[in-house]
């Protein structure tokens, strides 16, 4: 077998790899009239922590927040391009693009690079035009669907089963004569998000340092109470009417 001998003895020239993996995890959960989008702030390559604060979650409009995870350079460029398209839309139509349109925009932008993909997993969260909380999740080439909750990134395999159990009540049986709720209130969702990340930090080396939780709340939602007097909450809403956006920052373990 001369062919296989050549393969064994001849070293192959290692070609330039334009991708790397920068760790971290993101997740989003939709409520009935709010949406929570969160991500840790560690950026790493291999066993090295590059920085303890590199945001992965970005406010696009007052009703849409985008979380990106995977190859950080692609992620930053992708967010930049999405923001640019949203600005052009604003100039053309004098309003913010609705979230389901942003979702379709993201799908076409990702698929446009089908043969040299952005190596990024996207999760888009926010408020739909009918006032309901929405989460859209994407794969790197643009396949997407609307869901109630989704985790992505390094600790996806740790967090998603936990969310399936706690949000979708998978593998749980309701007590006789009762039913599981379709949507959880914000007061239950926030602790689940924080617990997801503290647990992922314990068990995954690429997760930790800091946590940024964006909360998008529909106008007139009852979720607003209790949110404003939360520790470390900051409002980042751009306009004065309509949906409101908040960020909650927490520390995670740094080891």
């Amino acid at each position: 077998m001369p062919g296989s001998m050549v393969a064994m003895t001849q070293p192959v020239q290692q070609s330039f790899n334009p991708y790397t993996e920068n760790g971290g995890t993101i997740l989003a959960i939709a409520g009935s009239d709010f949406s929570v989008i969160a991500g840790d702030t560690r950026q790493s390559e291999g066993y090295s922590i590059q920085t303890r604060y590199a945001p992965k979650v970005f406010r696009l409009t007052d009703k849409a927040v985008l979380a990106v995870n995977g190859f950080a350079a692609d992620g930053n460029m992708f967010v930049k391009k999405v923001k640019q398209r949203l600005e052009w839309y604003r100039h053309a139509h004098a309003k913010d693009m609705p979230i389901r349109a942003i979702a379709r925009l993201i799908q076409t932008m990702l698929y446009a690079r089908r043969f040299f993909p952005y190596y990024v997993y996207n999760i888009l969260g926010g408020i739909e035009e009918d006032g309901t909380g929405a989460v859209y999740s994407f794969d790197p080439v643009g396949s997407y669907e609307r869901e109630t909750c989704r985790a992505a990134g390094a600790a996806q395999s740790l967090v998603q089963p936990f969310l399936d159990n706690q949000i979708y009540f998978k593998n749980q049986t309701p007590a006789a004569g009762t039913q599981f709720p379709q949507h959880l209130p914000l007061t239950s969702v926030l602790p689940l998000v924080i617990d997801s990340f503290t647990s992922a930090t314990e068990r995954h080396i690429e997760v930790g340092d800091g946590l940024e939780i964006y909360v998008v709340v529909a106008s007139g939602s009852t979720s607003l109470q209790g949110l404003q007097n939360l520790r470390g909450v900051q409002e980042v809403t751009g306009t004065t009417d309509g949906e409101r956006v908040f960020v909650i920052r927490r520390e995670l373990k740094k080891d």
């Binding site: 334009p18 991708y19 790397t20 920068n22 950026q43 390559e45 090295s48 590059q50 920085t51 303890r52 604060y53 590199a54 190859f71 950080a72 350079a73 930053n76 460029m77």
Partner: peptide
């Protein structure tokens, strides 16, 4: 690769492992 980040201490190459 176009990867960017910021921190109060930075090091490239071998320094990222030994000096950082």
């Amino acid at each position: 690769l176009g990867t960017t980040y910021s921190a109060s201490t930075l090091a490239t190459g071998y320094g990222a492992h030994i000096a950082q």
